[in-house]
């Protein structure tokens, strides 16, 4: 290989893995052979290694002093189940339930009272409703003045005329 020849994309990708000791045996010997023959590859690998060393400059942060304590307290808190009876929504729900219960009780009591009253207590108005048709025509019925005529009225069609003719005929004879 030419001392200055460029590396293939795969060889370049393998350079990093080579530095990290992540290549298999055959790939390692291939890269070592490339490195032995190419100054460009040696330069690349050296730059990659030095770049990687620069990452040592990155800050290695430390936890603040009370971090462990705070974390343990948070964890303990997560274990404690909150008392739901103390929460606002629970109090509201409870108040709502009581109100709903009372409403249902009142509605049930009203229904029962209505049914009982309807069944056992007689009302004068019921009589009026039942006999409304008679009451409505009471004046006419009073004018009739004869039970027989009423019977004729309730009889078959044309019976009224026959009855009137019979009466008139009887009056003429007399």
């Amino acid at each position: 290989m030419d001392q200055l020849s460029r590396l293939t994309a795969e060889q370049r990708a393998n350079l990093v893995a080579y530095l990290d000791g992540e290549l298999g045996e055959s790939e390692t010997s291939e890269i070592e052979s490339v490195l032995a023959h190419s100054a460009v590859a040696r330069n690349d690998v050296e730059h990659l290694a030095r770049t990687y060393d620069l990452l040592d400059l990155l800050p290695r942060a430390k936890a603040s002093e009370d971090f462990t304590e705070r974390t343990m307290a948070t964890v303990r808190m997560s274990d404690v189940r909150p008392d739901i009876t103390q929460s606002e929504w629970y109090r509201r729900a409870r108040r709502g339930s009581v109100l709903l219960l009372w409403t249902l009780v009142m509605a049930a009591a009203s229904s029962v009272s209505f049914l009982v009253t309807r069944k056992f207590v007689h009302n004068d108005a019921d009589v009026f409703v039942r006999d409304f048709e008679v009451i409505d025509r009471l004046d006419v019925y009073r004018e009739v003045d004869s039970v027989e005529f009423l019977e004729v009225l309730s009889g078959p069609k044309g019976a009224v005329l026959d009855d009137i003719r019979t009466r008139r005929g009887r009056e003429t004879v007399d």
């Binding site: 370049r12 990708a13 393998n14 990093v16 893995a17 990659l48 770049t51 620069l54």
Partner: peptide
């Protein structure tokens, strides 16, 4: 991961060339 790290390190090398 190999490909991810390779691209990352190449990119860093380009950006930090003046320092190395």
């Amino acid at each position: 991961v190999k490909s991810l790290l390779s691209r990352a390190r190449e990119s860093l090398r380009t950006r930090l060339e003046n320092m190395i």
